[in-house]
Design a protein around this nucleic acid. Structure first.
Length: 648
DNA sequence: TGCGGATCCCTTTTT
DNA sequence: GGGATCCGCA
């Protein structure tokens, strides 16, 4: 490859030598170990542009990344560098890629009539139905709750381990119920088939199956995607790593990018061993390390290097920066949770006065509920914010209600949605709903069957409004927004009767209608609501009023991955919260918590604050939590300053 | 069969 | 503080 083939793009000015090497790398396997803030996205972006510039068909490049937003942003930036051809690159998450591919080959795997993707909540509901039907164990003991069952099943898939082993290792107290639990899983699998449901894990399983069992399909896909790139490879699980290998097997043109020190998804089967083993999977892998950090000032890097030093990460990296100046991070002890919130509010206000935009600050935490108190204080202080992660918009009951009405039209076999829709009508519970569902299904006319199917029940009149709605939906031409409005006007009276806080929920629904207006096909909309749901709770803080105004970001650490801010606050740096009590038994879990703190701290460019509220009572262990996170132990004062919040 | 009330539990992270 | 479950009444 001639060194300056791309005269149009100033590769030399924009990239350092290591980045340049990765960008210019020709065919074959490439592993890029990209430390935090080392220009990973930049490298991927330039490489996409470079390939396209050299004449590679953009549609033959597959870019798998962690969120759709991340891949869209990369392709957008590549388009700016080169031209609009870069938008044709195939990109998305593993799950959305699986969805698109499986829809294309649906007939091959026996889904001639298509399929419905179900989210975690739907999966739990289906498991719940089966669980209820099972005979109780008899010995007076309870079966695991449906959410636990869903976790167990998912873990077995994502770690590719037998159900029995997962039970024995992680749920020892349920291991004597292995037979019943196995039966529940068989039933669950059977019913998903019956109703044409695929859960998150099934998307990966079926894609994997498609690639292993149908050699012709695999060859077609391998021929189509001649360049494969995977971002955040350290967070892939065994199936995902296999999928990458199967796709790349024919040509070995595969570039994976990641950082073993930032692996934080072990709970869903991710194994950072994948990134360590990549060179073994692909003989002759070229390894490039990106070690210059462009994000943070030196004192922050001194701290984060120290934090990760004691971790058992395998690829050693030594991050350095040319950005000097600034103060060491600070650990602030506060007397309880509310003082923590007030400290953050005070500091945010100070920074704002000094000229830092709210957009450039973030508050990060381990779990969604850790920010509840802070949200109250921010509202009180009139500081607009948006919250990312934790509870999702699409998980709230009123959103699910509205979507369920659309789902019975799109997929009349969807028993879960029928139950939900019918259950909203007075005097109809699960039993009656199932009877009506069975009658409609036997009538085999789609959702419209409700209008003509013979029903044996007393209060037929109660069904009339729903019949009218379904009639109107099936009569109207496919116009997603119009259907949304029809359901909305039907549902509004139900919403008002059901919830005291209906004004807030109604605003959420209006937001949902606005999102719907962007879609042309109902199926696409419904799939996206499962695969890429809006990540922020829309009605949070004052941000909703003026979406364009600057606002503070509150985020779980998981959702903050890959992002950066001028100033970052990390809440609850309290031993027992972070790391959490439950992670303390298993050294691997504890290591993951450490990496999580590393990810959080490396988001900061200029200022980094830890807050540690003390004297917190932990109910699980009946103990008082008083010490800062063990990960901060032994870090000298010149690397991490310590302070007390004045109203101590 | 539906539904409201009482009592028990555990309480992360995401596609 | 919210499920899941159980119980008693309509």
């Amino acid at each position: 490859m001639p060194p300056e083939a791309g005269a149009g793009i100033a590769y030399h000015q924009a990239l350092n030598p290591a980045q340049l090497e990765a960008v210019r790398f020709g065919d074959g396997p490439l592993l890029v170990l990209a430390g935090a803030g080392s220009g990973k996205t930049r490298t991927l972006t330039y490489r996409v542009a470079r390939l396209v510039e050299e004449g590679v068909d953009p549609r033959s490049i597959l870019l798998l990344s962690f969120t759709r937003k991340a891949s869209q942003e990369m392709l957008q930036r590549a388009s700016l560098l080169l031209d609009a051809r870069c938008r044709d690159v195939a990109g998305g998450t593993f799950h959305s890629f699986a969805n698109a591919t499986l829809r294309r080959y649906a007939a091959v795997i026996g889904f001639e009539q298509g399929f419905t993707i179900i989210d975690r909540g739907d999966a739990e509901d289906l498991i719940g139905i089966i669980r209820k039907e099972m005979d109780p164990p008899g010995d007076g003991r309870q079966l695991p709750r449906k959410s636990t069952l869903a976790t167990i099943f998912s873990r077995a898939v994502n770690k590719q381990r037998p159900l029995e082993d997962v039970l024995y290792d992680d749920y020892g107290h349920f291991s004597d119920m292995v037979d019943t639990i196995t039966t529940i899983r068989e039933q669950y699998t059977r019913r998903k088939r019956e109703h044409h449901f695929l859960d998150y894990d099934d998307l990966l399983i079926h894609l994997h199956l498609l690639l292993t069992e149908y050699e012709a399909v695999r060859q077609r896909l391998a021929a189509k995607y001649r360049y494969i790139m995977v971002d955040e490879y350290q967070d892939t699980n065994p199936i995902q790593a296999d999928i990458v290998s199967l796709l790349a097997d024919a040509h070995h043109n595969v570039m994976v990018v990641g950082d073993d020190a930032q692996s934080i998804y072990a709970f869903r089967g991710a194994d950072y061993q994948n990134i360590l083993d990549f060179p073994k999977r692909f003989q002759g892998t070229r390894i490039v390390k990106l070690e210059e950090n462009y994000r943070s000032l030196q004192p922050i890097l001194d701290f984060t290097n120290r934090l990760i030093e004691s971790a058992d990460a395998q690829y050693s990296k030594c991050l350095f920066t040319r950005r000097h100046g600034g103060l060491p991070p600070v650990l602030v002890m506060t007397a309880g949770e509310n003082a923590q919130s007030r400290y953050v509010v005070r500091e945010v206000a100070r920074l704002r006065r000094e000229g830092t935009s709210l957009d450039r600050m973030a508050i990060l935490f381990r779990a969604g509920f850790h920010a509840f108190d802070l949200e109250l204080e921010l509202n009180r202080a009139g500081i607009p914010f948006k919250k990312v992660g934790g509870f999702k918009f699409t998980e709230s009951a009123h959103i699910k209600d509205l979507l369920a009405h659309l789902r019975i039209v799109a997929a009349p076999d969807d028993q879960l949605s029928w139950r939900r829709v019918l259950g909203l009508i007075e005097k109809i519970g699960p039993k009656t709903a199932d009877r009506i569902f069975a009658a409609v299904r036997a009538h085999s006319q789609g959702a419209g069957g409700l209008l003509s199917a013979p029903l044996k029940m007393k209060n037929q009149a109660k069904l009339q409004p729903l019949k009218d709605l379904i009639g109107a939906l099936t009569d109207a031409p496919e116009a997603v927004a119009r259907w949304g409005e029809l359901v909305f006007s039907y549902y509004l009276p139900i919403l008002r009767a059901k919830y005291d806080d209906h004004p807030r929920r109604q605003r959420d629904l209006e937001q949902l209608l606005a999102i719907m207006a962007r879609y042309r096909h109902l199926d696409d909309f419904l799939s996206d609501m499962v695969l890429e749901p809006p990540s922020t709770a829309i009605e949070d803080g004052l941000a909703a009023a003026e979406p364009t105004a600057e606002c503070l970001t509150l985020s779980t650490i998981h959702s903050a991955k890959g992002l950066e801010w001028d100033t970052v606050f990390i809440l609850w740096a309290l031993d027992g919260r972070f790391p959490s009590m439950r992670s303390m038994e298993d050294p691997d879990d504890l290591e993951e918590e450490r990496r999580l703190m590393y990810v959080a701290a490396t988001r900061a460019e200029r200022e980094l604050h830890f807050t540690c509220p003390v004297q917190i009572f932990d109910r699980a262990t009946q103990s008082l939590l008083c010490d800062p996170s063990r990960f901060l132990d032994g870090i000298p004062e010149n690397v991490l300053r310590r302070e007390n919040y004045p109203d101590w």
